[in-house]
Nucleic acid binder design. Structure first.
Lengths: 154, 154
DNA sequence: CAATTGAGTACCATTTTAGTCCTGTATAAA
DNA sequence: TTTATACAGGACTAAAATGGTACTCAATTG
């Protein structure tokens, strides 16, 4: 289904929750209650987000998590990458790209273009958009024509 | 990584292979050799593609598989859906949509919009594009602004 | 120093995915 | 009509990813 993993889903929800109160520090326990998810799982997710540089953590009493930068500067692609690794539709879309079938494959180039277009789409959606309870209104203005399937230099 | 499953990847490769010789009937064995993949796996993939209506099969001697319609009328989304089910980024993006967290989630609507934009993107890429050994040149002209994040009626 | 809260690690259960095999059935050609 | 070819369907197994839990350590505050 080309679905996000459940943890990624959680991550988005939690990030949105934090983004709605950007001033405060949010303890894992508090967040877990707010989003109605098991505490250890939320905690795990938060740690991944810290490691990816999307959140900063403060230990000790009165500690908790805060956004590392404004919600408008955190993208859906960032969140997905934090949990699942870089957005890439196929083996060969990744940097390492050690697929032994490249010779007989014949679709690698084109998949990579599609993959790039998807990444661009996801990079155009910010946490501020996601956290907004009202449906997003802004036109994204994706320059998809120039990116997706013509001369991509990847 | 928001990655395609390996079977989906195979499906795309096999479909492209068939698309390059649309006149002939292609036996599973022949295709397996052409793309250098284990025969039973290719066979399984082919069966799924038939069930999804993307291929038609012919039993008996000289039988095999052919495209059910021109390559230009089969999309990447079709192929993905044939193997993985409908393209949907989150639980709640699907028709059934029985996620109990909708209340506390707060990002469902917006994820659905993103999901829809991705689906549109994948629907704009045809098998003819994928099968083309040269990088795709055509501008896709996705009307993404009107679809992705503004008033979607889903 | 004690209470709070995050960090790290290891582990287990479940689910999904991938791959194989076997038996049945339709078709075409000899 | 017989035989070889080739798809159909389903059952089964193995492997991997995923999700979830538990436990211990480290840091900060008061």
């Amino acid at each position: 289904m080309l679905k996000l993993s459940r943890l990624t889903d959680y991550a988005a929800v939690v990030m949105a929750q934090i983004a709605r109160h950007p001033e405060a520090s949010h303890a894992a326990t508090e967040l877990a209650e707010a989003v109605q998810l098991p505490h250890p799982t939320v905690s795990k997710t938060l740690k991944m987000l810290v490691r990816a540089g999307l959140l900063v953590s403060q230990r000790g009493a009165q500690g908790g998590y805060r956004l590392a930068r404004p919600a408008s500067q955190i993208t859906a692609a960032d969140i997905i990458a934090a949990i699942e690794g870089p957005v890439a539709m196929t083996e060969c879309s990744q940097a390492e790209g050690d697929c032994e079938l490249v010779a007989t494959c014949g679709v690698a180039d084109n998949w990579q273009r599609v993959s790039l277009a998807m990444r661009t789409l996801l990079e155009s959606v910010t946490l501020a958009h996601l956290a907004d309870t009202a449906p997003i209104k802004l036109p994204v203005q994706l320059p998809i024509q120039t990116i997706s399937l013509s001369a991509a230099s990847a």
